[in-house]
Design a protein around this nucleic acid. Structure first.
Length: 887
RNA sequence: GCGAAGGUGGCGGAAUUGGUAGACGCGCCAGACUAAGGAUCUGGUGUCUCACGACGUGGGGGUUCAAGUCCCCCCCUUCGCACCA
C-alpha cells in the first residue's frame, strides 16, 4: 500500500475548529426530560496506549452522540480515567518510578489519541479516580456505608495473589492451566492465588441480592441476555430448606443442613461437613488421638487449597468421623463425614442422598455407603429418563447412576406418593412447626471484600483506636490523602504502614494515639459510582448536586465490553441501589440500556518447523517464506484476542497516522455489527479508505455543478434515472436513521452509503445537464454527507463545506426521509412457478393483484414452465412476488 | 455438565415483517492507462454445466404456494460458569 495519502489531510483543521465550537452538555438543574440523553462508554484504565479495545466502543459512542445532537438532543458524553490500580504500581516498581507518573503520562498520551480520533467527549467533565477531589467522595460513600452497616470488618479467608501481594475478590480469580496443571490464578498477572486469613473490610452486597435480581427483570430486553443471565447465575439464588439434624457428640449438638431437595430426606445415608465447619473442631477434640490426627491433617490439606482449587475436579475424599447424626424426620442414625467436596456454603453441611445426587452417589460408591432410593420417576419424569435411556441403551439402576430429576416419593413414610414440589413444601412446613428447620434462601453471591494491601488506591477512611475501636474519619477531614512519598515495594503488608506519618493519628473520638487503616480500596469501588459524578464533576461541597444529577442520570446508554458483565456491572448496580436508599438519587438502576460491544481479534500465525517454534507477524512470515525458512505447511493460523506475544495485533493509532482517523473509524464500524466479535484483517483499511477517497473526489468534481442550487423547488419533473437516484438517497436516510434508532448495525448503514456513492457515479457519468438532475445529484450528496457525518465527522465537514455550506454539518438538522421519493414508479417483481423464480416483470408500483397475475402469465419464460400444465393456484403479493402453482 | 451466542461464497459480512439468498467490502479474473504497478479506472466473479438448467444458507425431518428466517431431532464452534447440595 502506498504510504502517501491520496487526498488532502483536513482532519486537524476540523479538530481545531471543534475545540472552539463544541457545544457543551447543559448544566441545568431541571429534571431529566425527553431531550436529555446521557450516553457513556466505560472509562478506560490508562494502560498506555489506545488499542482496538478502546477504539471500537469510543467510535460507536461518538457516532451515536453526534447523531443524537443532530437530532436536537441535549447530550452528555463524558470520559475520564479509572486511574488507580495495580499495573501502574507494578510498572512503577519495575521502572523505579512513581505510579502517578506512569498514570498521568499514559493519560496524556491516550487523551491525545482520543482527540486525534475526533471523539466529541465533554472534556470539561473529565475525571480521575486517583485525584483527591474524586476519591474524597469514594471515601464519603464508604463512610455512609459504614454508618448504615453496609460496610463492616471481619477476618476471613481471602484469595491472596502471591505476586501482587494483595487480596483479590473471587471475581478476580480465574482458573488457569499451565504445563498441564490446573490452578487458581490472578486475573491480572496470572500468578498463583492462595488462601489467606486476614481482617478486611466487606460490603454487604448480599443484602441487596434479591433487589439485584429483581432489577435484572426490570431491565428486560434493554440489557443483553448474556449479561443478565451471567449476573443471575453469579447471584445464584437458591430456595431450599434448612433441616436440623442432631450430631451425637459428647452431648447432642444441632447440625443444620441446607438442601434444595428436602423431598429426598428419607434417602439420607450420611451427613457431610465442610472442613471449615465449626463442628469439625469439636469432633476432633472428642476423637481418639489417631482419628484426631487423621482429621487434622485432612482439614489442613483441604484448607491450603483455595475454594476454587478444591472445586477444580479433585477426587472426592472424606473421613468418617465415627460420630453419628440423627435424621429428624425418621430418627435414623447416619455417619458424619468430613468431606473435601462440601463447600462452606449454606450451612457448610449437607445431608447426603446418594440415590438422588450425583456427587453423593460418587462419594457413596467410593466409600461403600448405602444408596437408598426414595424418589420414583413419574410419567412425565419417565419421558425424560426414557429419552435418555434410548440413547444410552438401557435405564440405569440406582446403584449405577443417581436419579436427580423430580418424581414421586417412596420409602418416605407418611410422605409416600407426594410429588417432589408437594413433598418439599410439606416437609418444610412440618419442620418449621416442630422448630427443626424450615424454608431458607441462600445465595452464591458473597459479600464484597474491598481491602487491598497495596499503595495505588483509595485510602480507607477509618481509624483504629485502641480504646474506641473503629472510628470513622470525620467527614470534615476528608479526603484522607494518599501520600506521595511511600515505599510501595510489595512486602505483603500495606505500603502505607511503612510511611512515617500516614498511620499515626489522634483518635477523633478520644484524642488518644490511634492508627489509620493502611489498606486501600479495590479499584472496582472507584468505578462503581463515577457515572454519577460526571453530572456534577467539580462540586467540592458535596458528592454531586442532587438536581444536577437528576438532570442527566441515569445513563441512557452504556457502552462497554462483555468482560465487565459481572464485576463492574454488578458493583455499579449495588452502589446505585445504596445511593438511592440514602436518598441521593431517585432511581436504583444506573444504566437503562447496556450495549456490550464485541472483541476485535486478530489472526495469529505460529510457525513450527526445524528452524523455529514461535508466533510471527504476517510481515515476518512473508519474509521467512521468501527466504525459504517457512512454508504454508509449517504454520497454524488461529483467531485470537490481540496480544503482543501472539504478534496478531494491529495498532489503530498507527493506522490512523497512515490513513486518517475517519478511515480507521469507518473500518472499525464496517467490520461487522458492533456487538459481535470480529477479526481484524490486514486488508481491512482498503475498502473504507478507497471509499472515502472516491467520495471526496466525486464531490469535488461535481460540486461546481450543484453548489448554486437552493431548496428543491416543488413540481420538478425527474427523469427515471433521477427518480431512481432520489429513491436511493432517501432510502439511505431512512436506513441510517433506523440503525441509529436502536439496532446499531452500522456496518449495514455504511454499506448503503457506499452503494449510494456507486449510484451517484453511474448517474453523474451519464451526464447531469437539466435542472432536475442537478437537484437529484445535489440531494444525493447532501444525504451522504449528513447521514455519514456521525461516522466520519472530518470528511463530512470537509465535503459539507465543499457543497457550499457555511455552517458545520453538525449544526445542521438530521435529514428526514421522504417516503414518497423512496418509492419508484415501476417495480421489478419476481415470478415463481412452483416456488422457483422463472422470470421477472416490471409493473407500476400500485398495480393490483389481477394486473400482476396477468403480466406474470404473459411472461415468455413463465409460459414455458406452465405450458401444458393446469394452474392450481395463483398467489400475488403486491409489491413482492407472484407465485404460480401448476400441475 | 449448565448458561449464552453462533454456523450463509475463497474471506468479513447482508437479507430488520416467511416473499428474487449472497447487499457492501476484501480477495480473485480479464481489460484500460502506464516506463512500471502493491496506484487508479472499467467489467466479471456462489457451485456444477458448452448451454438449457440443476444444486445451494452445519446435517436430517416437518409446516407452507413460498423457509437462511417457523417447528422437531442431531452435529459442530466460540464465550462464560462449573462439586453452591
Amino acid at each position: 500500500m502506498d504510504e502517501e495519502r491520496k487526498f488532502p489531510d483536513y482532519e486537524q483543521k476540523w479538530q481545531a475548529k471543534w475545540d472552539t465550537t463544541r457545544e457543551k452538555a447543559s448544566e441545568a438543574t431541571t429534571p431529566k426530560g425527553a431531550d436529555n440523553f446521557y450516553i457513556l462508554s466505560m472509562f478506560p484504565y490508562p494502560s498506555g496506549k489506545l488499542h482496538f479495545g478502546h477504539a471500537l466502543p469510543y467510535t460507536l459512542t461518538d457516532s451515536m452522540a453526534r447523531y443524537l445532537r443532530m437530532n436536537g438532543k441535549n447530550v452528555l458524553n463524558p470520559t475520564g480515567w479509572d486511574a488507580f490500580g495495580l499495573p501502574a504500581e507494578n510498572a512503577a516498581i519495575e521502572q523505579k518510578s512513581h505510579p502517578s507518573k506512569f498514570t498521568y503520562e499514559n493519560i496524556a498520551e491516550m487523551r491525545k489519541q482520543q482527540h486525534a480520533f475526533g471523539y466529541s467527549f465533554d472534556w470539561e467533565r473529565e475525571l480521575f479516580t486517583c485525584k483527591p477531589d474524586y476519591y474524597k467522595w469514594t471515601q464519603w460513600i464508604f463512610l455512609q456505608m459504614l454508618e448504615k452497616g453496609v460496610a463492616y470488618r471481619k477476618t476471613a479467608r481471602v484469595n491472596w495473589c502471591t505476586k501482587c501481594n494483595t487480596v483479590l475478590a473471587n471475581e478476580q480469580v480465574q482458573t488457569l492451566i499451565k504445563d498441564g496443571e490446573e490452578f487458581q490464578a490472578c486475573e491480572r498477572c496470572e500468578s498463583r492465588v492462595i488462601p489467606k486469613e486476614i481482617p478486611a473490610w466487606y460490603l454487604r452486597i448480599t443484602d441487596y441480592a434479591d433487589r439485584l435480581l429483581e432489577g435484572l427483570d426490570k431491565l428486560g430486553d434493554d440489557w443483553p441476555e448474556r449479561v443478565t443471565s451471567q449476573q443471575r447465575y453469579w447471584i445464584g439464588r437458591s430456595q431450599g430448606v434448612n433441616i436440623d439434624f442432631t450430631a451425637k457428640l459428647g452431648k447432642s449438638e444441632p447440625l443444620t443442613v441446607f438442601t434444595t431437595r428436602a423431598d429426598t430426606v428419607f434417602g439420607v445415608t450420611y451427613v457431610a461437613l465442610a472442613p471449615e465447619h465449626p463442628l469439625v473442631e469439636q469432633i476432633i477434640e472428642q476423637s481418639d488421638a489417631k482419628k484426631a490426627k487423621q482429621l487434622r491433617e485432612f482439614v489442613k490439606e483441604v484448607l491450603t487449597m483455595t475454594e476454587q482449587d478444591r472445586a477444580g475436579g479433585a477426587e472426592k475424599e472424606g473421613i468418617d468421623t465415627s460420630f453419628k447424626a440423627v435424621n429428624p424426620l425418621n430418627g435414623e442414625e447416619v455417619p458424619i463425614f468430613v468431606a473435601n467436596y462440601v463447600l462452606m456454603y449454606g450451612t457448610g453441611a449437607v445431608m447426603a442422598v446418594p440415590a438422588h445426587d450425583e456427587r453423593d452417589h460418587e462419594f457413596a460408591q467410593e466409600y461403600k455407603l448405602p444408596i437408598k432410593q426414595v424418589i420414583q420417576p413419574t410419567a412425565s419424569g419417565k419421558q425424560e429418563a426414557g429419552a435418555r435411556s434410548a440413547s444410552e441403551g438401557a435405564v440405569k439402576s440406582i446403584e449405577e447412576e443417581a436419579f436427580t430429576e423430580h418424581g414421586k416419593l417412596i420409602n418416605s413414610g407418611k410422605y409416600d406418593g407426594l410429588s417432589t414440589p408437594e413433598a418439599i413444601a410439606k416437609i418444610a412446613a412440618d419442620l418449621a412447626a416442630e422448630g427443626k428447620g424450615g424454608e431458607k434462601v441462600n445465595y452464591k453471591l458473597r459479600d464484597w471484600g474491598i481491602s487491598r494491601q497495596r499503595y495505588w488506591g483509595c485510602p480507607i477512611p477509618v481509624i483504629h483506636c485502641p480504646d474506641c475501636g473503629i472510628v470513622p474519619v470525620p467527614e470534615s477531614d476528608l479526603p484522607v490523602q494518599l501520600p506521595d512519598d511511600v515505599d510501595f515495594l510489595p512486602t505483603g503488608q500495606s505500603p502505607l504502614t511503612l510511611h512515617p506519618n500516614f498511620q499515626h493519628v489522634k483518635c477523633p473520638k478520644c484524642g488518644g494515639d490511634a492508627k489509620r487503616d493502611t489498606d486501600t480500596m479495590d479499584t472496582f469501588v472507584d468505578s462503581s459510582w463515577y457515572f454519577l459524578r460526571y453530572t456534577d464533576p467539580h462540586n467540592d461541597a458535596e458528592i454531586f448536586d442532587k438536581a444536577k444529577c437528576a438532570h442527566w442520570a441515569p445513563v441512557d446508554l452504556y457502552i462497554g465490553g462483555r468482560e465487565h458483565a459481572i464485576l463492574h456491572l454488578i458493583y455499579a448496580r449495588f452502589y446505585t441501589k445504596f445511593l438511592h436508599d440514602i436518598g441521593l438519587i431517585n432511581f436504583d438502576e444506573p444504566f437503562k440500556r447496556l450495549y456490550a460491544h464485541g472483541l476485535i481479534q486478530g489472526e495469529s500465525i505460529r510457525v513450527v518447523n526445524e528452524h523455529m517454534n514461535r508466533y510471527v507477524s504476517p510481515d515476518e512470515f512473508a519474509k521467512l517464506k521468501k527466504d525459504g525458512k517457512a512454508g504454508d505447511g509449517d504454520i497454524t493460523r488461529r483467531i485470537e484476542k490481540m496480544s503482543k506475544s501472539k504478534k496478531n495485533g494491529a495498532d489503530p493509532t498507527a493506522l490512523m497516522a497512515q490513513y486518517g482517523a475517519d478511515a480507521v473509524r469507518l473500518a472499525i464500524l464496517f467490520l461487522g455489527p458492533g456487538d459481535a466479535d470480529s477479526v481484524w484483517d490486514a486488508n481491512g483499511m482498503k475498502g473504507p479508505y478507497g471509499f472515502l477517497r472516491r467520495w471526496y473526489d466525486t464531490v469535488l468534481q461535481y460540486a461546481p455543478k450543484v453548489e448554486d442550487l437552493g431548496e428543491l423547488p416543488p413540481g420538478l419533473e425527474f427523469s427515471p434515472a433521477a427518480k431512481a437516484l432520489r429513491a436511493a438517497s432517501h432510502s439511505l436516510i431512512d436506513k441510517v436513521t433506523r440503525e441509529f434508532e436502536g439496532r446499531y448495525a452500522f456496518n449495514t448503514a455504511i454499506a448503503q452509503g457506499m452503494a449510494l456513492l456507486n449510484d451517484i457515479s453511474t448517474f453523474a457519468k451519464a451526464g447531469v445537464e437539466d435542472d432536475a438532475s442537478r437537484y437529484a445529484l445535489r440531494e444525493a450528496f447532501e444525504a451522504m454527507v449528513l447521514t455519514l457525518s456521525p461516522f466520519v465527522p472530518h470528511t463530512a465537514e470537509e465535503l459539507n463545506e465543499a457543497l457550499g455550506h457555511k455552517e458545520s454539518v453538525f449544526s445542521r438538522p438530521w435529514p428526514k426521509a421522504d417516503k414518497q421519493a423512496m418509492q419508484l414508479d415501476e417495480v421489478e417483481i419476481p415470478v415463481q412457478v412452483n416456488g422457483k423464480v422463472r422470470g421477472t416483470i416490471m409493473l407500476p408500483r400500485e398495480a393490483d393483484k389481477a394486473t400482476m397475475e396477468k403480466l406474470a402469465m404473459d411472461n415468455d419464460n413463465v409460459q414455458k414452465f406452465v405450458d401444458g400444465k393446469q394452474i392450481v393456484k395463483l398467489i400475488a403479493v403486491p409489491g413482492r412476488i407472484v407465485n404460480i402453482v401448476a400441475k
